[in-house]
Design a protein around this nucleic acid. Sequence first.
DNA 1: CTACTCACG
DNA 2: ACGTACGTGAGTAGT
Length: 879
Amino acid sequence: MADTVLLIDGNSIAFRAFFATINSLDRFTNHAGVHTNAIFGFNNMLDILLKQVEPSKVLVAFDAGKTTFRTEKYGDYKGGRQKTASELLEQMPLIKQMLDGYGIEHYELKNWEADDIIGTMAKQAEAAGDDVIVVTGDRDLTQLATEKTTVAVTVHGVQELEEYTPKYVEEKLGITPNQIIDMKGLMGDTSDNYPGVQKVGEKTAIKLVKQFGSIENLYDNIDTLKTSKMKEHLIEDKDKAIMSKDLATIRRNAPVEKSLDDIGYSGPNVEVLRDFFTDMGMKGALAKIGGAEEKPAPKAKWSVLSAANIGDALKLKSPVAFGLEMLDDNYHNAAISAFYVGDADQTFVSADLSLLDDLEFHMWLEDPARELTVFDAKRMIVAAARLQLNIRPACDELLASYLLDPDDNSADLGTMARRRSYLELPSDAEVYGKGAKRKQPEDDVFYNHLALKSQALLKLRAGLLTDLEKQGETDLFTNLEMPLAGVLAKMEMRGIKLEPDTLAEMGKNFEGSLAVMEQDIYREAGHEFNINSPKQLGTVLFEDLGLPAVKKTKTGNYSTNVEVLEQLQSAHPIVKDILSWRELSKIQSTYVNGLQKALQPDGRIHTRYLQTLTQTGRLSSIDPNMQNIPARGTGKQVRKAFVPSHKDWIIYSSDYSQIELRVLAHISGDENMREAFREGRDIHANTAMKIFNLKSPDEVTPDMRRQAKATNFGIVYGISDFGLARNIGITRTQAKQFIEGYFNQYPKVHEYMDKMVEVAKKQGYVETILHRRRYLHDINSRNFNLRSFAERTAMNTPIQGSAADIIKIAMVRMDKALKDAKLQARMLLQVHDELIFEAPASELEELKKLTASVMDSAIKLAVPLKVDSHAGDNWFDAK
DNA sequence: CTACTCACG
DNA sequence: ACGTACGTGAGTAGT
């Protein structure tokens, strides 16, 4: 049987692993202060590869040093590179040590690069009839792909591999693997610092290689090329092209002293590896290599709380960890199966919820002096409230972790703890199981797990708080997000009243219309099919009816989205019918039916806001999502079903006008934009005047205003000419002119965009006005797409995030203001820039004044904030 | 469990 | 030259 040979580009993988986690470099250090992030990433990758590939032979090749035969040929080869970071350098010998523990051969050869070692070994292995897998972070190695050799290139750090077979190379580039060197020869390589032919990039290079097959053949037939600048350049740079091809060519005959027989792999030396991982402080890896079976689940000390010893709980000292355990995630109705309470010394657990009714214990828990530390405050507040217990946690560790890094938002304490190097708490999934198998374990295991949670909370608390302080987020945490958790809990518990009859009636009508439309569509198609299936619909439109396919999806299927269908409207009458059917069917299934399913026995909808999910600081809403109820078109009717709780009450909504553009005017410091807002001008018309170079607002046509509005939006999203052009249906050149005009008129906005990208590149994150932070891992990526995305995010996040900050302040203050004014009015919903209330009609005037003053003054910006409000008998009319 | 589509700001 | 708007959640099909 053929062997599978795994060949790994050691330097390249170490490099990728290092940069994948460079933002949290300091979280990966061992007792001696040595960084371990690259070791960690390398190990993860190795672990996965060994399991998936099950190789019988493995070799990790390293570069031997700076000088190689390539630098002898061309002195500037790989010149001008930055020095390797010392934090990575110190890990290189340790990675080799780890490989020794794995029993994996590693090898380097003076004057040769790792690539050449790999190329040489791959050739030998192929000759022996083996299958070869090359793993690297360097695309240039894809030239090695053959029928027997697959080249796996890392994407997204080292998490994922993209496998290059000859077929895949051809699909992707249109040339064969062994033509890659011809392409590189023509285009050169900036990172390896060798030249190609002037003005020839990847596109041109591929075109030429396709045409001529190779550089040699190209120059043999150069006369067949039409006279052009390119031809001149090709002739002028012939020597460079030939030299560059030579530099790009991986040698397959390096004097490698290892043979296939030397690189057999038969599994790790667990003892050696265990010592190594222990020394590196890599507890996760340690557990994985066999520690796992031997090591019992962590054991906590705890006592079961009962009526007999409840007095002991009252002696616990702040900070006190507390939690109500629910195995379902919807805390509005999940069964509460137990609670835990503890301090640094003692932990109590109990499944007897009636203990929480004990008057003394009850008051002790509710006492604001208690400093309760919890995981997911809103969840705990709502669950406790169901037991008539009104807690006000002082510290929510989920929220803290989320503010430190919005990526760290796992709804599981054990998972968060592990990320912070605390390994004494397994995840809920490990203890309870997941999916259908999830269930409460026997008492001993269950109580132990709860006790571990209590102890983890107390162990992690100080570190989280000092980290918040270090990141300047203490105020955001203490004075905004923590209080907001309480406000949101109240909003969710109140819910909003829904009249199911209103929906049911709408549903009946829609059902009738849908049935008629369906028949029309089937008739036009010539047969019945599932209109809801994009696949079947694609077949009907683009094969049966032969309409021109406009666009494909990323998986290569026909796209049938609105944009496509709108373009096809005139081509066939069926298209219009499908569009109408789609619109109605969406309303029917998601809203008319969906909302009725979400209606609770109390006649109300109780959404859950996710306070620790979005990357920008916005809330999101689930189960049901109350932030995407139709606001336009036919679907808007759905809003009629949302009504006040009581007779003679009203629904009242108050929304920030243009909050994101006002934030932009503020943080960019642009005087032109600030003035427009200060003067109370129509910002879109103002922008239209600027970019169309008009003298007076009267000259602004509705279409100009529409385009200007789209441009304003585009700016907020981190504009590109392509995106803007597509959005408003103009040419890319026109879009470019719009943007140029825009930046001329709002010069500081331009500066702001550049500055945010620069800041992100330098420090790895951007911030909102309240110092909410978002890390942008891809900001220095060499992948254009990833990097561009990160750049747009760098521009957008401070804007979207600061707007989120502002409405959150307004919510916390509104909650207090309503209480202070002793109004019956209540806040029910938040939809990003809008707050929705219900109130007795008699309170409307006062409510108007209150929302205006509280929302306007939530924060002091260099421009005024403006609030619009509407009232009505239901949500539809409150707009 | 992923892909597609479409609802919101 | 590269391929694009920013942030979400839910329903349905189809593997």
